[in-house]
Design a protein around this nucleic acid. Structure first.
Length: 270
DNA sequence: AACAGCACCTGTAGGC
DNA sequence: TGCCTACAGGTGCTGT
């Protein structure tokens, strides 16, 4: 479900409320969303407070006052929601952190997400490429040079760039005027510069609109995002391109649906 | 050793 | 209404 803008939006709303607040209790309804398996999360969290909440790629990183850290990955359907303790818990609420009068609830119907204990030494960097908002064209060029996969598929590879997902990969390629099927190592230097700029531009705009809500994404306060209204290609198959009116095409690349304008995003464009 | 393909899960929307 | 299929903001494993 959530990509960088959605994750960042959640992090911001959580940080505003939870920093320095004590975790009074922890309720685990499903142990198997916690990694490592069998890890006793409750006893490591109870009585602690949060000193920092941040993000790396799509991981939400929580720092505790005893120096331990953990991260939450939301997978496709995960949510972190902050609700009054007495509010009824929705189905698939797997873990609850009890604060004074509120609860932070980890809800994840499909269970592709999870809660990962890092301890004091674990790193959230594992397998992650550069942060797209900080990325230099040279870093992008370096990564893309080494793969013949389609540029779309390459952008979804978190070790290439950390934080893009299916929506923002498609939107960035549209903004850059690049055909998603082009092999990554065939992009010209000019296209790479343009793509790097397009990625940042799309992500910043999405952040300003608090992410995209297609079906069930909500921030920590239950608010939907608004950026879906500004999508130019994602989910717009057969609709007219906002730029040239050509019908947006939907194809499958690397097993993921991919949307693009066959006129604005040409293989041959430089 | 890179890469395609599939598995992991549940919910929902659309066709008949 | 009910049954069936297709599809969904992601990733990790498998075999080639």
């Amino acid at each position: 479900m959530p990509e960088l803008p959605e994750v960042q939006t959640i992090v911001q709303s959580l940080a505003r409320v939870l920093i320095r607040r004590r975790i009074d209790a922890v309720y685990i309804n499903r142990q198997d969303v916690i990694r490592p398996a069998q890890f006793d999360l409750a006893s490591h969290l109870a009585g602690r407070s949060l000193t920092h909440i941040g993000r790396r790629g799509k991981k939400i990183i929580l720092q505790l006052d005893d120096g331990n850290r953990l991260y939450v990955h939301l997978g496709m359907s995960g949510r972190l929601s902050l609700e009054p303790s007495q509010a009824p818990a929705r189905p698939h609420t797997h873990v609850i952190l009890q604060f004074q009068s509120d609860q932070l609830r980890f809800v994840d119907p499909r269970r592709f997400g999870g809660i990962f204990w890092l301890g004091t030494d674990g790193s959230a960097e594992q397998g992650l490429g550069p942060e797209p908002l900080l990325m230099r064209p040279r870093q992008l060029a370096l990564g893309l040079r080494g793969t013949r996969r389609s540029i779309k598929t390459a952008l979804l590879d978190q070790s290439m760039i950390a934080g893009l997902g299916n929506i923002y990969a498609d939107e960035a390629l549209f903004a850059a005027g690049i055909d998603p099927r082009v092999p990554a190592n065939k992009l010209t230097p000019k296209q790479i510069v343009r793509l790097n700029r397009a990625i940042k531009q799309v992500l910043r705009r999405a952040l300003r609109h608090r992410g995209s809500t297609l079906r069930d994404y909500r921030d920590a306060n239950g608010q939907a995002g608004r950026f879906q209204k500004l999508h130019r290609v994602y989910g717009r198959g057969a609709k007219p391109c906002t730029h040239c009116r050509t019908a947006i095409k939907r194809i499958v690349l690397g097993g993921r649906s991919t949307h693009f304008c066959p006129n604005c995003q040409k293989r041959s464009s430089t």
